[in-house]
Design a binder for these strands. Structure first.
Lengths: 201, 201
DNA sequence: CGTACCCGAGCAAGCGATTGGCCGGGTAGG
DNA sequence: CCTACCCGGCCAATCGCTTGCTCGGGTACG
């Protein structure tokens, strides 16, 4: 059980299979997706998947890692060399949105099956990453309060929690029905709502 | 298969079982919860559940119906005899929050397994109800724009979509970790954010 | 007796995962 | 050029287990 199995030969085929699996995870969630469905999408049998991966979880692992690395990298660059917290937050919002549209599956997995993943030692890095994300947001919100730019009665932690989840939202609209907005329209509407609210000044 | 099975004898025990199932659905989602887990929570065997319900889906059906009826009823009363759209929206926000805290499971089911439910004829009423909800929100937002109270450049449909999903968020915090906010704190913070944004005036 | 409730045992279907072997395209040695 | 070998990719079959659900029979209460 503890023997080191095949690590991760980064083949072309393998990457393609991950993309197929990610699409299914994005639509149905991780647990609700079966390895047989993934195999069907690839036009092979379920057993053949285990030539590339040693378990269904390792597929999920790879998807989640890629997502979090992307997000954290974006945040670090968003706050680097930026003094104005409002600018930093706007850059974080745009960075988040871009990353989320690149990793739609990871988000669905996190919100549907968070309890499943975070209970496993293998996915301990999830908690670590989430903490860094939270701290980054709170730092910028607090800075905005201190320099008088944001309302002094702002609960930074509460606003962060709301914001984080709000940012997830538009991702789930991607495949939805009818008239849809462009990414820019959504982000601009969101930023406007965040900074100014709906009331006319 | 098409024979009319037992309808729904509204017994005490039955209602209790639904509450137990709802708690599990709220934590793990509908599909991820097994009938055996529900039975375990009730201290009986899985087969014994089928004395009360003819399927797992009918349990879900009952939960979802109760939720939507509650929400729609609250909205209708929120907008009745109210001229000021800002007041109406505030009442809708508070009504939603109250309903959601009463039906935590229904919300989890809708966001985790929406694709699963809405694809079935049995749950066609889900789409109907969502349409009425959407129309109610948009009506009030448009009225606010017309009387100059809300920003004229507001995309009512976009704001509704954001708002609807934002309102669902705090529900999932209920069992979460650490310091938590009271319902009033969350609602007030939310309303403040909605109307005024984070920027100091 | 009847009704409400539940047990115990089990079913078919589907699940994730494993295994041994087939196949075709290199690559190397002669 | 031919032969021997390897190797990535996949199939076929199967394992042990869980899923939602069924059903005949039992028990306790009124």
């Amino acid at each position: 059980m503890t023997t080191t199995k095949k690590a991760a030969p980064p083949s072309e085929r393998r990457a393609h299979l991950i993309r197929l699996a990610a699409d299914l995870f994005a639509e149905k969630g991780f647990r609700a997706t079966t390895v047989r469905e993934i195999a069907d999408a690839a036009g092979i049998l379920s057993g053949s998947l285990y030539h590339h991966f040693d378990s269904k979880e390792s597929i999920g692992d790879e998807i989640l890692r890629g997502f979090l690395d992307d997000v954290l990298d974006g945040y670090r660059r968003a706050v680097a060399d930026v003094d104005d917290p409002r600018v930093a937050i706007e850059r974080m919002v745009r960075s988040s949105t871009a990353a989320l549209s690149r990793h739609r599956a990871a988000l669905t997995m996190l919100q549907n099956d968070w309890a499943y993943f975070s209970a496993q030692d293998r996915f301990a890095y999830l908690r670590t990453a989430m903490k860094e994300i939270e701290q980054t947001w709170i730092d910028q919100l607090e800075r905005g309060k201190q320099d008088g730019q944001f309302r002094a009665d702002l609960d930074a932690r509460l606003i962060y929690r709301l914001l984080r989840d709000i940012l997830w939202i538009p991702t789930s609209w991607k495949q939805a029905q009818g008239k849809s907005w462009t990414t820019d329209e959504v982000v601009d509407g969101l930023l406007r709502l965040l900074f100014d609210g709906v009331v006319a000044r």
